[in-house]
Nucleic acid binder design. Structure first.
Length: 859
RNA sequence: GGGCGCAUAGCUCAGCGGUAGAGCGCUGCUCUUACAAAGCAGAUGUCGGCGGUUCGAAUCCGUCUGUGCCCA
């Protein structure tokens, strides 16, 4: 075995072997209890980024542990078709050839998208193998697959028949670049610099001033609205004024929605281009005049025809200024503006006919499932956010003016007929019948993911075995986008059974300074680079160690390097064990045969198993990973392995016992680490145990073995060794330098550990002519050292004085507390006892340190 | 504008009522035969400010300041 672990040599072959042997395949017919997690489907256009790596590390560790615990595990892989994103990618490809999708026509274009997917889509699947994801590849699904498309059509039909899907003309969020409607949550608001202009409508006494950031829409104004109680305008309500530039006469209406405090208290009303105005228009039966086309270009006849909306804005303000109608201008005026989440283009509210889901009853059920505890959100602090959203949900616009996606299964007849066609029905044919040209929102299909991937609407054995799924692991950022949709659809389609019982939310990956990673900021990291440099395990370990529930995880290269060092440390400790004949053969020797060190480490091992188990069940990945890190490094590697050295060197039956315990400790530790660092543990575990694979090994169970006496005994030993080392270090001795020492250990538990003490503190026996130049009293024992010459008295005086000062401070604090009658009377007895113990300890320390100081030769 | 968080060692974060912790970084000394991707030892904090509750507050409450996110 080389002295360094080289991940690149083992990771690829190990993964292929796992897949070939079918470890990750989920069996419908298994008798084992099921454990199911569906992958949050990555976008078919995407490649693996740190966010995926993070999420997959969490899911993989959960599923690997459950597999080891004897569950029939299904980690369901797949991708979604990402309607807008994918169509954009292929349209850009076409543009390079000088073509648009319209040149190809719908059918050929969709064919072209499939071709693109076959050639360059789904890169992420290959990259997931690098990470070690234990998914069942034989079950990989895509939202546009035949079966999943059937599921979409089925649920559409069912919702339609139940009156939960309807068609209506409303204001929607329109992206003039993607040329499609998008839903409310696909709009990102940000503060932009715009302008607020105040325009005088009408003349003389009959004039009224309105303020707007969107002057260009004034061409479509059909009213001016004021608050009904606004005394300034009461007399004008019901009258008409002339709309500038157009000559049209529009009414002044009173509407409670108007904020009298904003601007002049009068607003222009453009029902076709603003959601609030649309509602005002409905209440007052106003016409809606569309003045912008799908590209955001002015369609109103006149001098502005053909101008883009932003050009039109300044042109119209200019024209109004020329007429002397601009009363005030505020520029820049910072206000919140909606942008397309896909392409960042400013959203254009647009009046159009779309399909909608009536969400109220669905959202109610989705909220209730969490409220009544049938679904738990981890961490709980995220619940209010979920409720706030789900309880105030507006109807969901599901139609998209795209070609790539699930086409809406509705046919229109020559006489205005509308027929929704189910998956087993034939669409109407004949003269004048045609299908709706729109497709459905991608989230509509991914909302079915937890059961459509299992074969629903068919009553398949997979659905039977693996639904409902166990846990949903996803980022809090898509709680609304995806989780809520799965809850709504799942409860509806599966007769009230939620699609999962637990939602475990994680945060976003950030850079080492806690900054959001972004390509434009230049701090984005390709996880593949780090895996190349440090191994998949190192990346996984780093991510797991940062995974506090629901909070963001910062990551930097230094940290991955640190994790790589940890993996290497595990490698070398196991290497040591193998070189020294550690074994897992035969039963563990009975407690009477074990040394104190053996009993101590086995006690700590079992405590660690219990601790890690509890933390896993609570989705506390950072804590459990940290617990494993410290147990492995600080206890097993730094102390237990060191303690075995003297025993192993002595040989005999004691060494055999130690070899067995060492084998046991490493076996269990490797199994505990396996879900987080699968590759290095597989390599080492198979070498150590000769077993087939740690992937299918049994998850460690707490044997219940505890030994508080041994724990105290080893702690004392550690304390003495550290004390001697500290003295040596203070005295400037080289670490390897042997020092003659006379040990007086009688009456303490250290008697049995003289060998270990001498070996770890580098102390040789006192021989002829031994002359103690320093004496260290520690915990009832003394260590006398012969430094063969003068010791550094000043260094020692400094050290002792510092410790004395600390002990005196401690004493003073304890005395003050115990002198406080209220404390003694009211505090818990255990707390008081603790302080008394501290007082005693401090008193002892002061005596000892004072004596040592006095014993020092005078300078 | 509304809501939710967060402010703890140089950096990133745990701790959330009873003596301040981790990783990385830092300072010494070492290639001591598992490991220099390491070992040993060490230093570092009025726990954002101000009030309050309590015998006792980093931890609970109020308030201010700073900062982040979500929604409108």
């Amino acid at each position: 075995m080389p002295t360094q672990y080289t991940p690149a040599d083992v990771e690829g072959p190990l993964y292929e072997r796992w897949v070939e042997r079918g470890y990750f395949a989920a069996d419908d017919k298994s008798e084992k209890p099921p454990y199911t997690i569906v992958i949050p489907p990555p976008n078919v256009t995407g490649s693996l980024h740190l966010g995926h790596a993070f999420e997959h590390t969490i899911i993989d560790s959960l599923t690997r542990r459950k597999r080891m615990q004897g569950y029939e595990v299904l980690w369901q892989p797949g991708m979604d078709h990402a309607g807008i994103a994918t169509q954009n990618v292929v349209e850009r490809e076409l543009a390079k050839e000088g073509k648009s999708r319209h040149d190809l026509g719908r059918e050929a274009f969709v064919e072209r998208v499939w071709q693109w997917k076959a050639e360059s889509g789904g890169q992420i699947s290959g990259q997931m193998r690098r990470l070690g994801d234990g998914v069942d590849w034989s079950r990989e699904r895509f939202t546009m697959d035949e079966g999943l498309s059937q599921a979409v059509q089925t649920i559409f039909k069912r919702l339609y028949d139940d009156g939960l899907i309807y068609r209506a003309e409303r204001i929607i969020n329109w992206c003039p670049r993607c040329l499609t409607a998008i839903s409310d949550i696909e709009v990102e608001y940000q503060d932009d610099e715009g302008e607020l202009v105040s325009i005088r409508y009408g003349e003389g006494d009959n004039a009224i001033v309105v303020a707007t950031t969107r002057a260009e829409t004034m061409l479509g104004d059909t009213a001016v609205a004021v608050h009904p109680d606004d005394e300034r305008y009461k007399h004008m309500v019901g009258t008409e004024i002339e709309l500038p530039l157009t000559g049209r006469r529009i009414p002044i209406v009173a509407d409670a929605h108007v904020d009298p405090e904003f601007g002049t208290g009068a607003v222009k009303v453009t029902p076709a281009h603003d959601p609030n105005d649309f509602e005002i228009g409905q209440r007052h039966d106003l016409p809606a005049i569309t003045v912008l086309d799908e590209h955001g270009v002015i369609t109103a006849h006149g001098p502005f025809l053909g101008l883009d909306r932003f050009e039109a804005r300044s042109a119209i303000v200019g024209a109004l200024r020329a007429e002397g109608r601009i009363v005030a201008e505020k520029r820049p005026y910072v206000h919140s503006v909606g942008h397309c989440s896909r392409c960042k283009t400013t959203i254009e509210p647009r009046l159009s006919m779309q399909w909608w889901v009536k969400v109220a009853p669905l959202a109610k059920a989705a909220g209730d499932a969490v409220r009544d505890g049938s679904v738990k959100i981890h961490p709980e602090e995220m619940e209010p956010r979920y409720f706030a959203w789900v309880d105030n949900l507006r109807d969901w616009c599901i139609s998209r003016q795209l070609w790539w996606g699930h086409r809406i299964p509705v046919w229109y007849g020559p006489n205005g007929e509308i027929v929704c066609v189910g998956p087993d029905e034939e669409p109407p044919t004949g003269e004048g019948w045609h299908q709706d040209t729109d497709v459905l929102d991608t989230w509509f299909s991914s909302g079915l993911w937890p059961f459509s991937t299992l074969g629903w609407p068919g009553q398949t054995p997979s659905l039977e075995k693996f639904f409902p799924t166990s846990v949903l692991v996803t980022g809090y950022d898509i709680l609304f986008f995806w989780v809520a949709r799965m809850m709504m659809f799942g409860l509806y389609a599966m007769d009230g059974t939620p699609p999962f019982h637990t939602i475990a939310l994680h945060g976003m990956v950030r850079d080492q300074f806690g900054k959001k990673m972004s390509k434009s900021f230049g701090n984005a990291v390709n996880p593949l680079d780090w895996m190349d440099a440090y191994g998949a395990d190192a990346l996984r370990f780093t991510l797991a160690r940062g995974a506090n529930p629901g909070t963001d995880v910062p990551i930097g290269e230094d940290w991955v390097q640190g994790s790589r060092n940890f993996c290497n440390k595990v490698w070398n400790a196991t290497r040591f064990a193998l070189m020294n004949g550690a074994t897992v053969e035969g039963p563990l020797p009975a407690a009477e045969q074990l040394s104190a060190a053996d009993r101590w480490i086995l006690s700590r091992l079992n405590s660690t198993v219990a601790e890690v188990d509890a933390l896993y069940d609570d989705y506390q990945f950072a804590k459990l990973t940290d617990a494993l890190f410290h147990f492995a490094w600080d206890e097993v590697f730094d102390w237990y392995v060191e303690l075995t050295k003297s025993t192993l060197a002595e040989g005999g039956p004691a060494a055999d016992v130690t070899r067995r315990v060492l084998g046991e400790v490493l076996d269990v530790t490797l199994r505990l680490l396996h879900p987080i660092t699968p590759f290095v543990t597989e390599t080492l575990w198979t070498a150590l145990t000769g077993g087939e694979s740690v992937v299918i090994a049994e998850w460690p169970a707490d044997s219940g073995f505890r030994d508080a006496v041994a724990e105290r005994e080893i702690e004392l030993l550690q304390q003495v060794i550290t004390e001697v080392r500290r003295f040596r270090s203070d005295q400037g001795l080289k670490p390897g330098q042997k020092v003659a020492a006379r040990l007086t250990l009688e009456g303490t538990s250290l008697v049995a550990h003289e060998g270990a003490l001498r070996s770890l503190a580098r102390l040789t026996p006192a021989e002829e002519g031994f002359h103690a130049t320093a004496t260290l009293p520690i915990a009832g024992a003394t260590v006398a050292l012969d430094l063969s010459g003068a010791i550094d008295v000043e260094a020692e005086r400094k050290r002792l004085s510092k410790d004395l000062a600390a002990a005196e401070k401690e004493l003073a604090q304890a005395e003050a507390k115990l002198g406080n009658e209220a404390f003694v009377a009211k505090a818990a007895p255990a707390a008081v006892d603790k302080i008394r113990g501290r007082l005693a300890k401090a008193t002892e320390d002061i005596e000892r340190l004072t004596a040592q100081l006095e014993a020092l030769p005078k300078a």
